Computed example of a mutant assay.
Amino acid sequence: MAERLSWVPSNIDTGLPSAARLYDYLLGGGHNFAADRALAEKFLVAQPNARTIARLNRAFLRRAVLHLVDAGVRQFLDLGSGIPTVGNVHEIAQKAAPESRVVYVDYEDVAVAHSRMILEHDDQSAVLQEDMTDPHAVLAGVRKTGLIDFSEPVGVLTVGVFHFVPPERDPAGVVAVYRDAVVPGSYLALSQFTADLQPEEMAGIVAVMKNSANPMFPRGHAEIAALFEGFDLVEPGVVPLPLWRPEDGAVDEDADRAGIFAGVGRKT
């Protein structure tokens, strides 16, 4: 029998797994269902390091947001934000700079419902239910919130989601619309799975996700770097997750097992 909990929107098919809830499970969250956990276990067979990768990706998000805050950014657009867990963008940014404003964007019903619940009393943050690959609709919705002033720098975040964008949706074109909507001094933080680091494991992940609602499309280093066209990459460039500005200056993980490249760029 499909699960039905008080926080689950009535229109949700809990028997259909989603990538957002799979990621929630890998991070140790509680907003996932049996179908998500079953898919996640197959994911873990293909990539035994998946829980560590999920944690490293979340840690990159934190470091990227703090870097942007240090650079003076006070407004953030989090694309494909997923199910909120510990260390949400608004928590990180507002702790460092209380005036920070955040708009989350996701199309997954549970992610949006839970985000709305968390943000109910936060007038500096909002969530939109939109598909990030329709940037014009997203930007129109963002403008309606009144939270983002596009005449000031914006931190655009797309962390751990672009591997779900198929080639036919023109990933570079999608990024370009967001890039053109923000002023110089804005930033793009992006991470996505690659086959460059662990090709066999990545092939297994692609096979697991192929028939799910969220098939995956890993990209090579050059393809990921090309998504930053129009941005100047912040040092150290596009690198495996744990190598992007580790907080203590030391990396205790095997970078080649990170599975994901990450980078941050500044629009000039």
Rank of each mutant, 00 (worst) to 15 (best):
P184R: 12
R74T: 14
T268R: 15
G249A: 07
P199M: 01
D70Q: 15
P171M: 05
S115C: 08
Y23K: 03
P184W: 09
D196N: 06
L26F: 09
R51N: 11
A96I: 10
L27G: 07
R169K: 15
G72Q: 08
S6N: 14
V138I: 05
L188H: 09
M209N: 01
V154F: 04
T158C: 11
A34R: 15
R245K: 15
A111D: 03
G28H: 10
F33M: 02
M216S: 03
Q192L: 06
T85P: 10
Q192Y: 03
P215E: 04
L233E: 11
A213S: 13
A213P: 00
K95P: 00
G29L: 09
A50K: 01
L22Q: 08
A258P: 04
E168M: 01
E201G: 14
D232Y: 07
M216V: 04
V206I: 05
S10N: 14
S191P: 08
E247A: 15
V142C: 03
L139W: 11
V112F: 06
L66D: 08
D149H: 07
V159K: 02
D134M: 05
E201I: 03
D180T: 13
G30W: 07
R51I: 11
P199C: 00
S115T: 04
V73T: 14
S151W: 12
R266G: 00
A54V: 05
G28N: 13
S10D: 15
V161M: 09
H67W: 12
M117V: 14
L39W: 07
M132K: 06
V89H: 04
R4F: 12
R55Y: 12
Q192W: 00
P84H: 04
D78I: 05
L66T: 09
F228R: 00
L68I: 13
S6M: 13
H67N: 13
G87I: 07
S100T: 07
L66M: 13
V102R: 06
P240E: 03
F164L: 12
P215S: 12
